[in-house]
């Protein structure tokens, strides 16, 4: 991977822009239960939740450290247990494998960290109706893409390398997933506005 690290202030800025756009939708939409609007809100909330779980700068070393400590503890403990029970190396290995699987399930190292999506509270009075896709969402997407490209590094800006980088780097994969959800939300809103314009004509 490139030495360029994603600046995590950017992440906060993108999340703030998404929150702005979300807020604008909730304030101006006349019917939040309309299919396209509801879909867009769901995608936006999901995108925000994905961005909340982008692994930070220190999460890699911390993960290695936790895995090391847990592995050492479990291996030593299972060896001691097998010795006390009078078993040999095979018993110790089987015990260690079982305990490791349980320990990693409990500590959640093998699971994906999930954050429940949150939505802003709907206002009492319905708004005047959506007339355009909130500009904040488009700006959020631009910043998100530039953040991802910076994270991937200049050497990987050709398509085959970028594809590999997206699947190889967990942080970049999360950014791509959030970008996909954001694009889906914008697309849903555009389809809603398109339906509206057809009704009026």
């Amino acid at each position: 991977m490139s030495p360029v690290r994603a600046p995590y202030t950017d992440l906060g800025a993108v999340r703030a822009l998404i929150a702005d756009g979300f807020d604008e939708i909730v304030r101006t939409a006349d019917d939040l239960d309309q299919f396209w609007i509801r879909s867009a809100c769901g995608r936006l909330a999901a995108a925000d939740a994905v961005l909340a779980t982008v692994p930070g700068r220190r999460s890699g070393p911390v993960n290695v450290l936790i895995t090391t400590v847990v592995t050492a503890g479990v291996a030593a403990g299972s060896a001691a247990l097998a010795r006390a029970a009078g078993g040999g190396l095979v018993v110790a290995l089987v015990l260690a494998a079982l305990l490791l699987a349980v320990a990693f399930q409990v500590t959640g190292l093998l699971r994906r960290r999930e954050v429940a999506p949150v939505r802003p509270a709907a206002p009492k009075v319905p708004g005047p109706g959506l007339v355009e896709v909130p500009l904040a969402l488009e700006r959020a997407r631009v910043r998100l893409v530039s953040m991802g490209l910076r994270r991937a590094g200049r050497a990987n800006w050709r398509v085959p390398a970028l594809r590999r980088a997206l699947s190889g780097d967990p942080a970049l994969a999360r950014i791509a997933e959030a970008d996909l959800l954001l694009c889906q939300a914008i697309d849903c809103l555009e389809r809603y506005l398109d339906d509206l314009s057809k009704d009026w004509s």
């Binding site: 290695v64 895995t67 090391t68 592995t71 050492a72 503890g73 479990v74 291996a75 030593a76 403990g77 299972s78 060896a79 001691a80 097998a82 010795r83 040999g88 190396l89 110790a92 260690a96």
Partner: peptide, 16 residues
């Protein structure tokens, strides 16, 4: 290798 300390060392080496 069935002693606790060597087994822990081997496991950590494999993880790294």
């Amino acid at each position: 290798p069935a002693r606790p300390l060597p087994l822990a060392g081997i496991a950590v080496a494999a993880v790294w």
